[in-house]
Simulated scan of single mutants.
Amino acid sequence: MSHKPTDMLTVGEVAQRAGIATSAVRFYDDQGLITALRTPGNQRRYPRHVLRRISIIQAARRFGVTLAEVATILDGLPADRMPSKTDWTRISRRWHAQLQARRREIECLEAELTGCIGCGCLSLTTCRIVNPDDQLSQQGPGPRRLIPTHNDSAGQR
Rank of each mutant, 00 (worst) to 15 (best):
M1Q: 05
M1A: 09
K4G: 05
D7A: 06
L9T: 05
L9H: 08
T10H: 05
T10M: 06
G12E: 03
E13C: 00
E13F: 01
V14Q: 00
V14G: 01
A15H: 00
R17T: 02
I20T: 01
T22S: 04
T22H: 00
V25S: 01
R26P: 05
D29Y: 04
D30S: 06
Q31F: 01
Q31V: 04
Q31T: 02
L33V: 02
I34K: 05
T35A: 08
T35Q: 11
L37M: 10
R38N: 04
R38P: 07
P40E: 10
P40I: 02
P40D: 13
G41P: 06
G41N: 14
Q43R: 12
Q43L: 09
R44L: 12
R45Y: 09
R48H: 10
L51C: 06
L51P: 07
R52G: 14
R52D: 10
I54G: 00
Q58H: 04
A59V: 15
R61W: 05
R62M: 14
F63L: 13
G64R: 04
G64K: 04
V65E: 00
T66I: 10
T66A: 07
L67M: 05
L67V: 03
L67R: 03
E69G: 09
A71W: 04
L74E: 08
D75K: 14
G76V: 10
G76Q: 11
G76I: 07
L77D: 12
A79T: 12
P83R: 05
P83F: 05
T89V: 09
I91S: 01
R94C: 07
R94E: 02
R94Q: 11
H96A: 09
Q98H: 01
L99I: 08
R103V: 02
R104A: 12
E105Q: 08
E107N: 11
E107G: 06
L109V: 06
E110S: 07
E110I: 04
A111W: 06
A111M: 09
G115S: 09
I117K: 05
G118D: 15
C119Q: 12
G120T: 09
L122P: 04
S123N: 14
T125W: 14
T126M: 07
T126R: 13
R128N: 12
R128C: 07
N131M: 09
P132A: 13
P132Q: 12
L136W: 07
Q138F: 04
P141T: 15
P141C: 10
R145A: 13
I147Q: 15
T149Q: 14
T149L: 14
G155T: 10
Q156C: 10
